[in-house]
Nucleic acid binder design. Sequence first.
DNA 1: CGCATTTGACCAGCGC
DNA 2: GCGCTGGTCAAATGCG
Length: 236
Amino acid sequence: MMSTTSQTNVNQSLLEEQDQIPTQMGFIPFPPNQTFPSLGCHQSLKPIGAVVPSPSSETASSAANFAETLLSTSIQRPREDLTSCFGGGGGGQLLSLNRSRVNSWAWEEVTDCLMGKKIGGDDNHHLGVSSMKMKKMKARRKVREPRFCFKTMSDVDVLDDGYKWRKYGQKVVKNTQHPRSYYRCTQDNCRVKKRVERLAEDPRMVITTYEGRHAHSPSNELEDSESPFELSNFLW
DNA sequence: CGCATTTGACCAGCGC
DNA sequence: GCGCTGGTCAAATGCG
């Protein structure tokens, strides 16, 4: 457990660190005193902000809507507040507006997601082994899912979010001392992935990035009395 | 023995 | 065109 004072300090330091978020996504700080029950967080886990694909000015309001959808399941936050986080309120410079070519796909698809479109159709299942492998190799670069990530103050790397994950890779990325871990949802028809890494500047901070939508409910029936319903809402 | 994790290799995308 | 980097695969290994 950490005090409110130290949590505030963390939030302040985060505002300085936002430009160093690896994916250069937008950052939405959570209210210091709020917990994030829909993530199934333990008390030791302190989500302090969410990161979404960096919005351009014309899509800032959509980003706010997106974030609102994600966050409204567990915390109450005025819409105007969110909008200001994305620069829509003027002076709310709480995120990096760099929209690199690398993550532009993510931003566009998040927008598609907001519009209710289905993305990432998965019909390439019946292929010969070698060609399938090649298809996979190519597809894995082209087919991208909407992403959402957040920072968490935690001793443990992997959040207990109610879903079962299988680790499929680990990589030391440039300019970081801590390896990035890659996880995939263990459900057969679920293609959701997540990446977990620690901030180089502050190893106490864990950045978890979710990619894709869950096509099922959380695997473990949460004894958590909070609200499994909210959980499924949040993690798609 | 079955499942999860580790880890080296491979590939595609990107910048120069 | 080449080298670097991130993301993924899959065989090897570990663990219950």
